[in-house]
Write a protein that binds this DNA or RNA. Structure first.
Lengths: 151, 151
DNA sequence: TATGGCCTTGGAGCGCACTCCAGGCAAGCG
DNA sequence: CGCTTGCCTGGAGTGCGCTCCAAGGCCATA
């Protein structure tokens, strides 16, 4: 039934809950679902679009994720939070697959992303200021309203 | 021809470039396009979905935006940057239209948004740390690679 | 008077990031 | 053996936020 339900909405479990040591790191898709919060659909979709490295398979053809894959998914999750388009992440994944000679390009991509993140933080802080201003106003007006009601 | 082209990509012009004084504040849709960077399509769409207050019309039925409308669009732009869904902004717009007795609810909505923004900033700073770490690594490895090439 | 520019409308279309479906295989258990 | 559970696949569907289209009105300038 593909594990619908059990949406653990606890926002942020500790980074790596029950990760197994190198050598025995072989997780089924449903374990990865539990670790990452992504759905199995999404994990398979990431693979189809080339966002994942090659994923191991069991002798019956089922996916077996490694610690390294989990690390990659961590990074992808972080980049996703920055609003980076999936296509750009795929590009980065391609560069990684292409080997050492893409170091320079990867470096630039990361730096560009870093600049984006800084800009986004600045935007959000700007928005925060506006929000604080409005909230202050509402608190003020709300107090006046209460007084009026009471009067 | 609906003004396609002339994409002024200057990221952030001063807040209110050539705003007219109260009383003469009556802008055509294309002026608002120039001010906000939104398309005319989007402005009309915002209106259709109830995200805008009532917009004045000229005697021929064309939209005439006021300074107040521009302010509202400013706020909408800021909220958009936080990732707030348009539906939530519509809800806020509805509360404003409903009058003073929705003060409390609006206040709560703003505070919830504020909390979201803070959380998002924290996420981004977390991501920034990861990025910096990786960039440091790439800079290091890149230097080693250069040395190797030179040797 | 005709041409062009700017505006109007309802509704259809698009790109992104998933999300789900149908049909099927392999393993474990009573 | 039959049943359930968990996973597999290619492809279709969904929701959001625009984005565009076709057909037409108003008005200024040539």
């Amino acid at each position: 039934m593909e594990t619908t339900g059990t949406r653990t909405d606890s926002c942020a479990a500790p980074p790596h809950p029950h990760r197994r040591p190198e050598g025995q790191d072989s997780y089924t898709i449903s374990e990865v679902v539990a670790f990452t919060g992504l759905t199995a659909h999404t994990l398979r979709w990431y693979e189809r679009i080339g966002l994942m490295p090659h994923i191991d398979r069991s002798h019956t053809g089922q996916r077996r994720y490694s610690n390294r894959d989990l690390d990659w998914l961590d990074l992808v999750g972080k980049l996703r939070l920055t609003g980076m388009p999936v296509a750009d992440m795929v590009r980065y994944a391609e560069l990684v697959r292409e080997g050492d000679h893409t170091f320079g390009e990867r470096f630039e991509l990361l730096e560009a992303t870093r600049r984006d993140v800084l800009a986004r933080i600045a935007e959000l802080q700007d928005t925060l200021a506006v929000l604080d201003h409005k909230i202050g106003y509402y608190a003020e007006a709300g107090r006046a309203y209460e007084v009026e009601k009471a009067g």
